[in-house]
């Protein structure tokens, strides 16, 4: 390209550049802001509706408008790692407290006691682990004990890479502890037998749902309750059904403002209001509609609440003394999962 043609090219693009620059200037002057919510896999649909409702409410009451809330979804652990490595999240809404603990511990972008800053352990909704089986439940699976029967294939993602799978694993462990009167050897035998029945280990919850529902692999899928309802809606209630075990785990997916990021961006007020919105009657109703268990069911549509059968739910704190202990003992390098996953079958 000759010098003249470069200059001509430059002159042609100059007005466009100026126009772009003025666009940015205008948007700055109107004092609008964006939020980034870094979340885990199955919350897409939930937060799409929450975001629309929250933005409408905030913009009606505040001079500084919110233009949009961007969403990022992925495996809970890798999302936490992205925030630690510098992803500029205003809030995180992850699958388990251990992942937000990691952000607090490794990046120091929020205080260690973050879970005390919002009600209910900073979890505005809960969920649990249920069984998804083929129509008619051909293998007759009704409780955790049936998962180790010969010939029953169980689908669960890899707990090393999936937050949901860690809840699956701990729910099975908690059931076995009760069933075998805390006889650790028998609990370990049970978990090892269960893992032997797993033919495919996907890396995330959505991938495992596809393997089970679309590829037709396996007899039982250990699933988030909300993901199980989504799968029923997506793949047809005529092909799958949900089985509730006698006992399961109370999964508390927590939320937190990332202090380091919101203070740098000047979005603290919006980010805090966004998370508080989840606890409002309107937020709780949306939560129930998306098959998460609301903390305050009186605000939700009774039809939605009726979908949540009562079952014994153990918490991570009472059964495992919290994530700080459960994570290294079970899922750390050389933890029980590594020990009990018997290779080479």
């Amino acid at each position: 390209m000759s010098e003249a043609s470069i200059r001509a090219c430059f002159h042609r693009t100059l007005p466009a550049v100026a126009l772009l620059a003025s666009l940015f200037a205008v948007s700055g002057a109107r004092a609008q802001t964006d939020l980034l919510n870094v979340s885990y896999d199955p919350t897409r649909e939930l937060y799409r509706e929450i975001n629309a409702a929250f933005i409408a409410e905030w913009n009606a009451a505040n001079p500084k408008k919110i233009r949009g809330i961007r969403q990022s979804h992925g495996g809970s652990g890798s999302q936490a790692r992205a925030v630690i490595d510098g992803l500029n999240a205003d809030v995180v809404t992850l699958a388990l407290a251990g992942d937000i603990d990691a952000i607090a511990g490794r990046a120091g972008k929020l205080p260690k006691d973050w879970q005390a800053r919002l009600p209910h352990n900073a979890s505005p909704y809960t969920s649990t682990i249920v069984f998804l089986v083929r129509k008619g439940n051909p293998k007759g699976v009704t409780d955790w004990g049936d998962l180790v029967k010969p010939g029953v294939q169980v689908i669960t993602p890899n707990p090393k890479t999936s937050g949901g799978a860690r809840w699956n694993y701990l729910a099975a462990w908690a059931w076995a502890e009760r069933a075998f009167n805390r006889d650790e050897a028998r609990v370990r035998d049970y978990i090892a037998a269960l893992l032997r029945n797993v033919p495919v280990l996907d890396t995330g919850a959505r991938g495992a749902t596809t393997t089970f529902a679309q590829r037709g692999i396996g007899d039982v899928f250990l699933s988030w309750e909300n993901e199980a309802h989504l799968a029923l809606a997506e793949f047809g209630a005529g092909r799958l059904e949900i089985v509730y075990p006698q006992l399961s785990i109370l999964a508390e997916p927590p939320v937190a403002v990332i202090d380091g990021n919101v203070d740098a961006k000047g979005t603290r007020a919006e980010a805090e209001a966004y998370l508080r919105f989840l606890y409002t009657p309107k937020g709780q109703a949306i939560i129930a509609r998306h098959h998460y268990r609301p903390r305050e069911p009186q605000h939700a549509d009774p039809k939605d609440v009726a979908k949540f059968p009562l079952l014994t739910l153990v918490t991570i704190d009472e059964a495992f003394s919290g994530w700080g202990k459960a994570q290294p003992v079970h899922f750390g390098d050389g933890g029980t999962f590594d020990q009990l996953y018997k290779p080479g079958r």
Binding site: S78, K160, T161, V198, L201, D202, P343, G344, R345
Partner: peptide, 23 residues
């Protein structure tokens, strides 16, 4: 792959698993 350890687990997946553990 199915990603079953010792059977169908590829080395790049092991790297990803390590990263998920912040290792």
């Amino acid at each position: 792959a199915g990603n079953i350890p010792m059977v169908s687990e590829i080395a790049p997946l092991l790297i990803v698993i390590r990263l998920e553990q912040f290792d």
